[in-house]
Structure formats: C-alpha cells, structure tokens
C-alpha cells in the first residue's frame, strides 16, 4: 500500500447478511485532495465512510487511512481524522463552547492548548456570537459550521464529511464549501466528502460516482464532463447511471 495516499482502498466490501452494501470498491485519495463521493440514497456512501473511520469492520478487502490499516489500527486512525455526519451530532443541550471543550477533551486537548484551539476555530468559522448559546438553539446553517469547527479542533490530517450540507440553504452551502476549500488549500487537510447535491461535485478535485455499492466512474469533474460531453455534473451522473442500468438489462 502506498503511504503517500491519505486513503487507499482495495476490494473494500461490506455485506449486511445477504445484502451487499459496498461491493469491491478500489480507490485512492491523495494527501491534500478534496475527494467527493456522489451517490443517491442507499448507494453505500455512509457505509464506506464508517469502514474508513474504523467504526465498521469490512467484510472483505483492505484499506489504509493516513497509513494505518483500517482492519487493525482503528485506534490510531481515530487520532488523526475528523468526522462530521449528515445527522447533526453535537449535544444540543450543551453550549457550543461546552461541545468543543468536550470533543477536544476526548482528543486529550486541555487547559491552555484547548483554549487556543477553540479560539482559533471560532475565528476561522466566525462562530464567536454563538459560543455560549445552547447548540440546539442556533440556526441549522450555523450548526454545520459549529460541527466543522468541532471536528477540526484537533487538527486532523483527514476530514470525513458525510453529507455535511444536507438540508442547508444554497447560500449557506456555498459559504460552507468556501470554508472547506480554505481548509484543504490553506492547511493541506485532506477532505473526503459525500453528497447527493451533484452540483457540489464541481468543488471537488476528483469525484467518484457510486451506485448500489459500486464505483461506476472516478475522475476530475472537468474530464468527467468532457468525456461524457455534458455541461454539468448532474447530466454526467444521470448518464453514467443510465448507461450502467442499460448494460444490466440488455
């Protein structure tokens, strides 16, 4: 396995009973890359992320994240990754600051160091006004930013974002992606992001089209569009899926 890759996966498979949610997928993500996973509901995006983050054991295949094996070194992996899920998952009865103090604490951050980190992400994401409000009381768009702030407190090498913008209005989504962009370009954080807003693929360096557990195509948005001679990613996506389903029914 090549250790220059932030994520490197071979034949990764997950079966739930008879059902195969992720079916022998291969891909690699370079360090510092923004890597997108596009797919409809049930495509297997979340399942893949869960395996990469070390909270779900693959049924088959192998993979490494930040050079650590996802089979045997999940404890090491957890130290160097950040994760934010499609379901907002901070404690709504705690203030923003308390949430950050807590999650920072689980990474062993404390005292002055913890304070400094909280100050830094607060400035970076502009969430100073909300620090002492209960997390449950702030608007959804801001919650996503707070989630991002909390997921990056410990300076992760790789950030996994599972449908981070789902349910957020378009302008907040644009802002969110700008922040992600800064994060990747500014501090070299690798971003692994899933989405079913296909136009968001334009923000990615490379994107994989996932369908029923398999990866149908993987390339930069520009060359995907030119290869299928489409003007936007939505058309590319629809085309690729149609082609695939056509093959199956013939």
């Amino acid at each position: 396995m090549n250790h220059d890759y932030a994520v490197d996966v071979e034949d990764l498979t997950k079966r739930f009973g008879r059902f195969t949610a992720v079916d022998h997928i291969d891909f690699s993500v370079r360090r510092g890359e923004i890597f997108g996973f596009l797919g409809a509901n049930g495509a297997g995006k979340t399942t893949t992320i869960r395996m990469l983050c070390g909270i779900l054991l693959p049924s088959d295949g192998k993979g490494s994240v930040a050079g650590y094996s996802i089979m045997t070194q999940s404890e090491r992996i957890k130290q160097v990754i950040g994760y934010m899920s499609q379901r907002f998952s901070l404690y709504s009865d705690l203030t923003v600051r308390e949430n950050m103090e807590f999650f920072g604490g689980t990474y062993g951050l404390k005292n002055q160091k913890l304070k400094n980190r909280i100050e830094r992400v607060t400035d970076l994401y502009g969430i100073g006004d909300f620090l002492d409000q209960l997390t449950g009381d702030i608007p959804l768009g801001w919650k996503q930013r707070v989630g991002l702030a909390s997921a990056t407190l410990h300076d992760p090498q790789i950030l996994f974002l599972d449908e981070p913008t789902s349910g957020v209005d378009p302008s907040a989504r644009r802002q969110f992606w700008q922040t992600i962009y800064q994060l990747a370009r500014g501090s070299g954080t690798t971003i692994f992001v899933t989405t079913h807003y296909l136009e968001e693929a334009e923000y990615c360096d490379r994107a994989a089209i996932m369908h029923k557990g398999t990866i149908l195509d993987l390339d930069t948005p520009a060359s995907l569009k030119s290869r299928y001679s489409k003007s936007n990613m939505e058309d590319v996506f629809v085309h690729v899926i149609r082609e695939h389903e056509g093959e199956l029914t013939v």
């Binding site: 983050c53 909270i55 404890e75 994760y83 899920s85 998952s89 404690y91």
Partner: peptide, 14 residues
Amino acid sequence: ETGTMTQLRLSPAG
C-alpha cells in the same frame, strides 16, 4: 437516538 453515539465512537475515547 440523537446520533451523538457515532460521533463519540469516532473520537479516540474507548
């Protein structure tokens, strides 16, 4: 229920 368990399991806390 609220999904924070996933976040907790993803943190290094065993």
